[in-house]
């Protein structure tokens, strides 16, 4: 089955991972800008990172036949540095017209601090002024419930925000409802210890349905598995769910959401084969 990983940090992964993902059916990835494991010291550090995401990474993905899309932002962890964050936000428009950029993300909260809220709102303002989609990171562990509620509150503050153009990521059992009830898209991240397992993600699908929801690996530089989406597919098959239902979650839903971006120039795998 073809699938799209809608959230994976491929710059942290080796080329062999692209190849393994492709062999398991991955046809496209979307890579939000994130915290690289250390705080960057200048706006030029981010500019180089954004060039990597928009220039080299699509090329590397293409070696395995995987289409690469990306998102621009300064992440919530580094947003604690407000002055640097504002320099980065001012620089982001340089990249919004690049061929593989889908929008602003992954913005959000980390420790739910006032500075993080300030920069979150400024990212949302940029997205509204530039008519971009938004991809949102929700906090980890004990901060997640409070942070997700705060994020939804801030999105609802801004009357320009259209919920169906926003994806709230890393939802779990206690946060999926607040995201969906307000009309946002949401995604579950398959991390075995700190987020969702494939079986819990399948439980959430069975409880809340398959509309406006997707699953991702969020593979990065830490312990993670870029082939986690196929694990979810296998779990759904084991439970007897139809191929059509599984395909909707791992392929059609990401396509529907990403297609709201004018930069989502996706070539279906059937067409790729015809094109040679």
């Amino acid at each position: 089955m073809y699938f799209i990983d809608p959230h994976v940090h491929m710059i942290s992964r080796v080329t062999d991972d692209y190849e393994r993902m492709a062999r398991m059916g991955c046809v496209a990835v979307s890579e939000p800008a994130f915290w690289a494991g250390f705080d960057r010291g200048s706006v030029d550090g981010f500019r180089d990172y954004f060039r990597q995401l928009t220039e080299f990474e699509p090329t590397r993905a293409g070696w395995s036949g995987v289409q690469h899309f990306t998102w621009m932002c300064i992440n919530a962890k580094e947003a604690e540095n407000v002055s640097l964050s504002r320099e980065v936000i001012a620089m982001i428009p340089e990249f919004l017209d690049k061929a593989n950029v889908l929008g602003i993300g992954e913005i959000g909260l980390n420790k739910n601090t006032p500075n993080e809220c300030t920069i979150f709102r400024e990212h949302v303002d940029l997205a509204m002024k530039t008519n971009e989609l938004i991809l949102i990171h929700t906090p980890h562990l004990q901060d997640k419930f409070k942070g997700t509620r705060m994020i939804v509150d801030m999105l609802l503050e801004d009357t320009r925000v259209q919920p169906d153009r926003v994806l709230i990521d890393h939802v779990e059992e206690h946060t999926v409802r607040v995201a969906r009830d307000h009309g946002f898209w949401c995604a579950m991240t398959l991390y075995p210890v700190t987020k969702c397992t494939p079986s819990r993600a399948a439980d959430i699908i069975e409880t809340y349905g398959d509309d406006r929801i997707m699953v991702n690996s969020a593979g990065d530089w830490g312990p993670s598995n870029p082939c986690a989406v196929p694990d979810f597919i296998q779990e759904m098959r084991r439970r007897g769910h139809s191929e059509a239902k599984i395909k909707k979650i791992v392929y059609e839903n990401p396509l529907e959401f990403f297609s709201k971006s004018c930069n989502f120039n996706f070539t279906p795998p059937e067409q790729q084969r015809l094109d040679g």
């Binding site: 562990l141 004990q142 901060d143 997640k144 419930f145 409070k146 705060m150 503050e157 059992e173 206690h174």
Partner: peptide
């Protein structure tokens, strides 16, 4: 599962903003 998640979660204060 949801109730266990909430046991391990910080409290949300309505109207914080």
């Amino acid at each position: 599962a949801e109730r266990i998640q909430l046991i391990f979660s910080d409290d949300y204060v309505d109207g914080w903003n």
